[in-house]
């Protein structure tokens, strides 16, 4: 398939490149993507724009290609002590992309990040709570909850990902998996469940009051409850529920946010149970 061979290197000026993998963010946790990757920042000869690219090194193909205009920067995730995790942030939006370093040594991490940020030239907003400077090398930070085996003190995130997957697949759909895949709201509030409320007068009249003018009647309500737009709102809400906004959400529903304290398990489950125990007639 020579016709479709991807060029190893784009034409243009490369500012910085280093080996790094992606991490996927499910709204609650980041999990390392095991693929070997590379981050590349270059100004394209073709369009004269600065491109941020993430490449799959095995397939030698560009997976992510973003155009940056003085609006992106890489930031070390201080909280992540078990690997060298970085977040690509944008000053122009809330977009976030997560990465983990795959360079064999930590020596050049800071230098690469500095080069990257200087080349993009974004104004990096100051952190409200300045943590320890990013200078501390990752190796110095020992994982707080060390794995039982002594040898895994500085466990490779790639290996960790494999291990995690192995363990969860061995343990079946256990608690570990439930954490990795938060329960989506659309699975709980299915169209069928939502439409069961159509026979409840009190529920209908309140819900109709919340609809846009175009749908303010019983028929409109039935339509909205089955609409893809509501499904979309539920997906957004799923993220909110599984994020640090859960206390805000609980408070706005008149529920006591302290129910989260010390609770484990799925955030949506927590919310549903708290609502029912408070509101059930």
């Amino acid at each position: 398939m020579a016709m479709f061979q991807v060029p190893t290197r784009p034409a243009g000026h490369v500012h910085v490149e280093f080996k790094a993998g992606r991490m996927d963010w499910d709204g609650r946790m980041v999990t390392p993507d095991k693929r070997k990757g590379k981050i590349l920042l270059y100004t394209s000869e073709e369009d004269q724009l600065t491109h941020f690219q993430w490449m799959d090194r095995d397939k030698n193909e560009v997976v992510t290609d973003l155009i940056v205009i003085n609006d992106a920067y890489l930031e070390r995730i201080q909280k992540c002590t078990s690997g060298r995790a970085y977040i690509l942030r944008f000053t122009s939006s809330d977009k976030k992309v997560f990465f983990w370093m795959q360079e064999p040594s930590t020596d050049k991490d800071d230098e690469n990040i500095k080069k990257f940020n200087e080349a993009v030239g974004a104004t990096i907003p100051e952190k409200p709570t300045a943590a320890t400077p990013a200078a501390a090398p990752a190796a110095a930070a020992t994982p707080a909850a060390a794995a039982p085996a002594a040898a895994t003190q500085e466990i490779d995130p790639q290996l960790r990902a494999v291990l995690t997957q192995f363990l969860t697949s061995q343990g079946g759909a256990g608690a570990g998996m439930a954490q990795r895949a938060p329960l989506p709201m659309t699975t709980v509030l299915t169209t069928e469940v939502l439409q069961s409320l159509l026979t409840d007068e009190a529920a209908c009249s309140e819900m109709i009051g919340l609809l846009p003018e175009s749908h303010k009647n019983q028929e409109g309500l039935s339509e909205v409850l089955a609409s893809p737009q509501l499904q979309q709102s539920l997906s957004a809400l799923t993220q909110a529920v599984h994020s640090d906004q859960l206390p805000v959400l609980l408070a706005s529903l008149g529920l006591d946010p302290s129910v989260i304290n010390g609770a484990s398990g799925d955030a949506l489950e927590l919310l549903c149970r708290a609502m029912e125990s408070k509101l059930k007639e």
Partner: peptide, 27 residues
Amino acid sequence: LRQADLVPLALCAMRHLARKGQLVAAL
């Protein structure tokens, strides 16, 4: 509908399901 905020509607539906004791069952 695309431009509307349907989150209050979703939460309202959840409250009514909770009131009727059907939310945990759905969960």
